[in-house]
């Protein structure tokens, strides 16, 4: 976990030298708030990537879960409706992820193609449900998560912290977490050792979907609306964060905490670039270069014969 941590510290020092207000409590609080949703997405994707697979359906699942959240809130935007909406978002995400996982394992289709297909299936469903429009949810109790602050940080940040702690434990300490790493490290050996490969693979995609669903509900709370474009650009930043955090795309190495560092690095760089007056559209280009550097530096040592 050292390289991303060092990069984060260096970036923080460099940016605060340029603009001391970066380290102000208000700005750090802003960094934490901005990171909450990307952290959920990156943690979900981490499980998939540790396994050596990839999930490109992030934005589609967000769109569909956000549509469902907004629709539940339209019926009841009180406390009960908000809890139901949160649950419905997570269940939608799990269900979408489970479909990807089952298609991937039962039909033996590479994950990146299945999830590419599911991206558009779920985005299409979301567009269908919303009729191409936007549902405003400005008054819903769900927004408490964003608006209510505890110890200076929004409730959503605390919620995400708790979930990340749980996910980190599950990934590093539970039997399931070890299975995932083992499959990513060497699936052949994992299979010969009698690990339930298919079940674990399908479950990982479902769990990742659950994380995206929760992230979608938080996005709806944050923006005060549900629409199909709500997840735009999330796939790129999610994969950037996971990769920058040091989780290897070939599987078997990395972890949830790596991805948290990766998200912080992406957010700090983004925030720093804004403070330094870099135009927003160049940020994506900078992240693109960073992805290449991170992946190149981590795969250069793995001399596989064939890579596609």
């Amino acid at each position: 976990m050292a390289p991303p941590l060092i990069a984060l510290i260096v970036a923080t020092i460099a940016i605060s030298l340029y603009n001391p207000s970066f380290l102000s409590a208000a700005n750090l609080g802003r960094v934490a708030s901005i990171s909450a949703i990307p952290v959920l997405l990156a943690v979900g994707a981490t499980f998939v990537i540790i396994m050596g697979s990839i999930d490109l359906s992030v934005q589609g699942v967000i769109a569909l879960s956000a549509a469902i959240t907004a629709m539940v809130l339209r019926v009841d935007d009180g406390a009960l409706g908000s809890v139901l909406a949160l649950g419905a978002a997570v269940v939608t995400g799990i269900a979408t992820g489970a479909v990807s996982g089952l298609l991937h394992t039962l039909l033996r289709i590479p994950s990146f193609m299945v999830t590419l297909g599911m991206w558009f299936v779920s985005a299409g469903l979301a567009t269908l449900l919303l009729g191409g429009g936007t549902i405003a949810v400005r008054s819903a109790d769900l927004r408490v998560l964003i608006l209510q602050r505890v110890f200076g940080l929004p409730l959503s940040v605390w919620l995400v912290l708790a979930i990340v702690a749980f996910a980190a434990l599950m990934q590093a300490r539970s039997r399931f977490g070890r299975y995932v790493v083992a499959i990513g490290g060497n699936e052949e050996i994992a299979k010969l050792s009698g690990l339930p490969i298919r079940r674990t693979r399908a479950a990982v995609f479902a769990i990742a979907g659950g994380f995206y669903g929760l992230a979608a509900a938080l996005s709806v709370a944050q923006l005060g609306q549900g629409n199909v474009d709500i997840g735009d650009g999330r796939l790129f930043t999610t994969i950037t964060a996971v990769v920058l955090g040091g989780t290897s795309l070939t599987g078997g190495r990395g972890g949830v905490l790596n991805s948290v560092l990766g998200v912080l690095l992406v957010t700090v760089l983004g925030n720093g670039m804004i403070l330094m007056g870099v135009p927003p559209y160049l940020q994506q280009a900078v992240l693109g270069v960073l992805i290449i550097l991170a992946v190149a530096s981590s795969t250069a040592r793995i001399r596989e014969g064939v890579y596609k």
């Binding site: 994969i239 280009a285 693109g288 290449i292």
Partner: peptide, 14 residues
């Protein structure tokens, strides 16, 4: 750089 094509092109796309 031996980067898998989907990630290389995702980054180039960015």
């Amino acid at each position: 750089l031996r980067v898998p094509s989907f990630i290389a092109t995702l980054a180039t796309g960015g």
